[in-house]
């Protein structure tokens, strides 16, 4: 087990207001971690901290050896793209390949192929030449997912990836994610409100929510108080 990311006593805050604290967990290579919790519990903020976009106000986040930022794919919860931004779907997806380019200025044909493959995976190949801003919300989400897949080498961070996707595409998405986790050993960190699918697919759960933070395997979560309360009530089918 190689720890990719270790969080010790991490606290997150905005303007001295603490959002989440006492976060202790380790993400190992090949893990599939799901982060759950109520709205506003700090899930997205934690993900931004894991990406180095936001410094923790306390504690430390250490990266295991060999994890470079350029090997991480990321799907933000919201992408504040201006309404009138001219960009084709292919341009957006291809920009996911950029991080591994280093100083090389232009995309190679391998990278273009990778972008096309990832578009195929999410069934947006026919949108290739379309203007990104004219797509529906769910189509945009798929474009951004393809972009994230292009950037992924070791780790993929997804902030509520199924928001806005229809049920068929949602379950396909879970399969794709599971697949790249199992097949390519890519570490997954996913934020989700869909607790049942999370429990089905993930091997670790991090539950944020005020004072009680839970971190453990999915089995442990199912047997814990907080997990039962969160999972219970609904019937699992």
């Amino acid at each position: 087990m190689i720890p990719l990311i270790t969080c010790e006593n991490v606290a997150l805050s905005y303007d001295n207001k603490i959002i989440a604290e006492n976060l202790n967990f380790i993400i190992n290579e090949g893990d599939y971690l799901c982060i759950v919790g109520e709205n506003g519990s700090g899930k997205s903020t934690l993900m931004r901290a894991l990406l180095g976009l936001k410094a923790p106000s306390e504690g430390t986040i250490t990266y295991g050896e060999g994890l470079k930022q350029t090997e991480i794919g990321y799907l933000p919860q919201q992408t504040a793209v201006q309404r009138d931004f001219p960009a084709s779907v292919f341009e957006v997806v291809l920009s996911g390949c950029l991080s591994q380019r280093g100083a090389k200025p232009f995309y190679s044909s391998d990278e273009k192929k990778l972008a096309l493959e990832n578009m195929e995976r999410l069934k947006i190949s026919d949108l290739k030449k379309q203007c990104y801003r004219n797509l529906s919300g769910g189509q945009q989400q798929r474009v951004l997912l393809s972009r994230a897949l292009c950037a992924t080498r070791k780790m993929l961070l997804l902030d509520e990836p199924v928001t806005g996707l229809d049920p068929v595409v949602s379950s396909e998405l879970y399969c794709i994610v599971k697949d790249i986790n199992k097949q390519f050993g890519i570490t997954i960190v996913m934020i989700s409100h869909d607790i049942h699918s999370a429990a089905d697919h993930a091997d670790h759960i991090l539950h944020l929510g005020g004072d009680d933070v839970f971190f453990g395997t999915t089995e442990e979560y199912k047997n814990s108080e907080i997990g039962k309360a969160y999972l219970g009530g609904h019937h699992h089918d």
Partner: peptide, 20 residues
Amino acid sequence: SYNKIFAVTFDETFARATGV
């Protein structure tokens, strides 16, 4: 730097998160 400029212009957060 055309491709980098596109990435930074389109979505700065994503670009920064992936190491640009």
